[in-house]
Design a protein around this nucleic acid. Sequence first.
DNA 1: TTAATATATGAACAATTATTCAGATATGGA
DNA 2: TCCATATCTGAATAATTGTTCATATATTAA
Lengths: 118, 118
Amino acid sequence: MKECTCLNCNCINEDLALKVKKDMLDDDILFDIAECFKILGDSTRIKIIYALKLSELCVNDLAFITNSTPSAISHQLRILKQAKLVKSKKMGKIVYYSLQDEHVIKLFEIGCEHIEEL
Amino acid sequence: MKECTCLNCNCINEDLALKVKKDMLDDDILFDIAECFKILGDSTRIKIIYALKLSELCVNDLAFITNSTPSAISHQLRILKQAKLVKSKKMGKIVYYSLQDEHVIKLFEIGCEHIEEL
DNA sequence: TTAATATATGAACAATTATTCAGATATGGA
DNA sequence: TCCATATCTGAATAATTGTTCATATATTAA
């Protein structure tokens, strides 16, 4: 194996490391992907996602289903909506939330598969 | 719509809310799924995942590729390994890391798709 | 054995974040 | 209009977490 001649680094396999570094996605894209997972990485929000996978629901019902409070659920729904993971429609006083698209469902299901194999 | 007769709740649609609550996955399963996403929800770890998607790599090279330090990368690799998202093999002084299985790749790719649609 | 290198680890600090609480806004009915 | 209710929001607190730094361990070569 060749020693690395880069400044400030100590690579074991220079050619490979340089090639991988060149082929990396841009930092901001990887940051956005991490942000997406971060939003899915909370118990309350995952409960919301799973409940909405079963049915469109309003804030109060989600609070009951997840053993949380309407305020906490409302905060989390705003975060999920900003990340385009859920959408909402208002009918009178009631706001109904549902999953944004199939991506969310797929992400949940593959995450679930991964857990089941451990 | 029927008013909810549950204690300590104020459901809008009692029948639906009760059904969804009954059909929810156990809290500890949902917790584990959220934990899995939480681990993917960090820029440094997502960079590691993407680099390992391109090639098996050792700690020093990952540090170079991700513009991080071997110490920081080692900490994150331990977390990824505990979550069974990456695996490792030792060859002499060098420890080579790679992705655990196809689940990790699928999760990354669907996350990537989701971001690209925004 | 001694030195050099690759990786791992523990503690501390800084930054992020989820929930709670109080109160605000919006809608529908009396 | 006034009241009740569904949802939202801002601030504060508590808890979690990623990185850094110093150091420890493991392996190879001299």
